[in-house]
């Protein structure tokens, strides 16, 4: 019996983001399309969080390998900007996963990154709002550096992106 699209989505849930291994690529919202094409052929579309994301080739490979592992014979993975990623695409479960990793999740945006949005951050450790941004650039392109004046800890945020 042919595999269904929802089974493919399910199979992909175990593929983790290589840079933040507590969150899956499906929860990140970077897998934008899954299409079953015939008996054992699957087409997957992905989109990068950042155009210059160095992990994209690796992620294509991880998706490919996972679907081969569950028995698909032919897997085609394509990266496109047809449906560009933005941080609102991270699932509710994904936001919790980010927090578990010690990252402040991105606040929901209304289609624009405003200064208010960049300043409205909650410490992932103590929930305090008494925090400051140290730098809009962190250890990966999608993270920024902050400091909590309440619990006196440095932390990172997964940046809001439109």
């Amino acid at each position: 019996m042919a595999i269904t699209e929802s089974e493919i989505w399910q199979a992909l849930e175990v593929v983790k983001d290589p840079e933040i291994p507590t969150i899956s690529m499906t929860d990140m919202g970077i897998i934008t399309k899954v299409e079953v094409r015939g008996e054992s052929s699957v087409y997957v579309e992905m989109t990068p969080t950042f155009v210059g994301c160095p992990a994209i080739k690796m992620m294509e490979q991880l998706v490919h390998d996972r679907l081969i592992e569950v028995g698909i014979k032919e897997v085609i993975v394509k990266t496109t900007l047809d449906k560009p990623w933005d941080s609102n695409k991270i699932s509710e479960r994904g936001l919790l996963c980010l927090k578990k990793h010690g990252l402040a999740p991105p606040p929901k945006h209304q289609g624009e990154i405003t200064d208010e949005l960049l300043e409205n951050i909650t410490c992932p450790f103590c929930e305090s709002k008494n925090v400051e941004m140290k730098s809009p650039f962190g250890p990966t392109l999608c993270r920024s550096l902050h400091y909590c004046n309440n619990c006196l800890q440095a932390f990172e945020q997964f940046k809001p992106i439109v």
């Binding site: 210059g52 809009p136 650039f137 962190g138 392109l141």
Partner: peptide
């Protein structure tokens, strides 16, 4: 880190 991150963005773009 900032200038290095911007470099990575720009070269990727």
């Amino acid at each position: 880190i900032s200038f290095s991150s911007m470099a990575q963005d720009k070269i990727g773009q």
